[in-house]
Design a protein around this nucleic acid. Structure first.
Length: 425
RNA sequence: GACCCGUUCGUCUAAUGGUUAGGACUCCAGAUUUUCAUUCUGGCAAUAGGGGUUCGAUCCCCCUACGGGUUGCCA
């Protein structure tokens, strides 16, 4: 019988939540949920220069937006505090243990931890068995655990926190793989049992370079205003470095929990592809009910208008543009669309005839049928009239279904827009 | 430089010691939608290179190349 799973995400407040960090958080969260364990958020705010209120808020806001709930700040459990800045007495206490065991020594005011000079082998849940040779002091000099100003360094606090918080699984970026033997040495010196480790591959830019703050897609905080849906972003980053091993690709959070496992995490770094991310977003948008979609849009447009564009957009930010022609009676007709209409000499006459038909129509619900009839009466195929009509009504060559446009705009407005268009031909 | 990890279509990935190496995004072409940016069908496109082991390697081993990571009194 093993202890209940406890995972953690331990970001430092840098002012934004990195996409890679978000995925690390997600994997920890998924693993904890999957095993009905706890997911702890611990803020590594020991670097005072960057540690501001806003910097901390960016983490919480990002996590909330992604829908990852945590034990930690704002939702305290019994292993707090959850800010490293409030844990110095704990570090103090654990540092004494190292002193008592004679594993640290002073060096120019700082304290160094004396490594055991041997081969350290770790058994990573993702990377498998990896060994690092600590017999060579040149390559692995004793590390500073306490600075000359009295503060403790990352490796030390990270290990003490994981131990005192009862963390069972450390899932973190591969950039920490080489840190792990150091952590293992510390844990051994404390006489404690190490957690299981799983190092996940990094996320790179689409050109393979390291993703940093200013790169496209790097900051989770940018996604909402770019029109992404949180479930879609979660879905997309889950697929970067992890695979369900079948051909499914679109999942809800609940389905992800169900399917997730550490064994299915890859070893090689993945590149961020905004196009695929948009496509995943579109798939999630398509799954929403008309009500959910229109609520997500936060738009002044009517539900009918929004419903007509739901399957036409891949980002929420495309919605205002997609419905703009409904709301603006003077919505300009795009030049390229108008040029296409002009290509067919008959367009003008067809539209003029249709304006007459529409005006005389007593039952507006018959509008769509009357298009084909009008075309035939004028010796044309329905398609030759449909396209000019679309352009006349919406000002664009593509958009919602014509029947929806007809219905939403209404008889009078449709006639007016047709006449406005023929005047330009 | 040293050490560690990795390498399947442009990208995300699946698979197996024996497959026409599968799917998805993108792109292109058809279809259908009387309109369309939806949908459907089809197409382009990959096992980094060289050695082994083996009847047979994408898969196992070695070397090289390339990519990434670590090498702080940053986290």
């Amino acid at each position: 019988m093993s202890a209940p799973v406890r995972t953690r995400f331990a970001p430092s407040p840098t002012g934004y939540l990195h996409l890679g960090g978000a995925r690390t958080a997600l994997f920890n969260w998924l693993f904890a949920k999957k095993h009905r364990g706890s997911f702890i958020l611990r803020v590594e705010d020991t670097d005072e220069a960057r540690n501001t209120e806003e910097a901390r808020a960016a983490i919480f806001e990002g996590m909330e937006w992604l829908g990852l709930d945590w034990e930690g700040p704002g939702n305290e459990g019994d292993v707090g505090p959850y800010f490293q800045s409030e844990r110095t007495s704990i570090y103090q206490e654990w540092f004494e243990k190292l002193k008592d065991a004679d594993r640290v020594y002073e060096d120019e005011g700082a304290w160094r931890f004396r490594f055991d000079r041997k081969l350290i082998t770790m058994n990573d849940l993702v990377c498998g068995e990896v060994s690092i040779d600590y017999t060579n002091e040149e390559n692995t000099p004793d590390m500073v655990v306490r600075r000359s100003d009295g503060s403790f360094v990352f490796h030390f606090v990270n290990v003490v926190d994981d131990l005192t918080m009862g963390i069972t699984h450390v899932i973190r970026g591969e950039d920490h793989l080489m840190n792990t033997p150091k952590h293992l040495q510390l844990i051994e010196a404390f006489g404690a049992t190490p957690p299981a480790y799983a190092h996940i591959p990094l996320i790179l830019n689409s050109d393979g370079s390291k993703m940093s703050k200013r790169d496209e897609g790097a900051a989770v905080g940018d996604y909402p205003r770019q029109g992404f849906f949180s479930d879609a972003v979660v879905n997309f980053i889950a697929l970067l470095g992890w695979s369900p091993k079948d051909e499914s690709e679109i999942f809800s959070l609940a389905e992800l929990i169900e399917k997730f496992s550490l064994e299915n995490i890859n070893r090689s770094p993945g590149r961020f592809d905004i196009e695929k991310c948009k496509w995943v977003n579109q798939q999630h948008l398509l799954k929403l009910s008309a009500e959910e979609f229109s609520a997500a849009c936060h738009s002044d447009a009517t539900p009918a208008m929004l419903a007509s564009v739901q399957e036409k957009v891949s980002l929420l930010t495309e919605v205002p543009d997609a419905v703009a022609f409904y709301l603006d009676p003077d919505y300009p007709i795009a030049n390229d669309a108008l040029d296409k209409v002009k290509k067919n000499q008959a367009s003008g006459d067809l539209l003029t005839a249709l304006a007459v038909t529409f005006t005389e129509l007593s039952d507006w619900s018959e509008a769509k049928n009357s298009i084909g009839e009008t075309a035939k009466e004028n010796g044309a195929k329905p398609g030759q009239l449909m396209f000019p009509l679309r352009v006349a009504l919406s000002g664009k060559s593509g958009g919602p279904d014509l029947e929806a446009i007809l219905e939403i705009l209404g008889q009078e407005e449709c006639v007016r827009r047709i006449n406005r268009c023929t005047a330009l031909l």
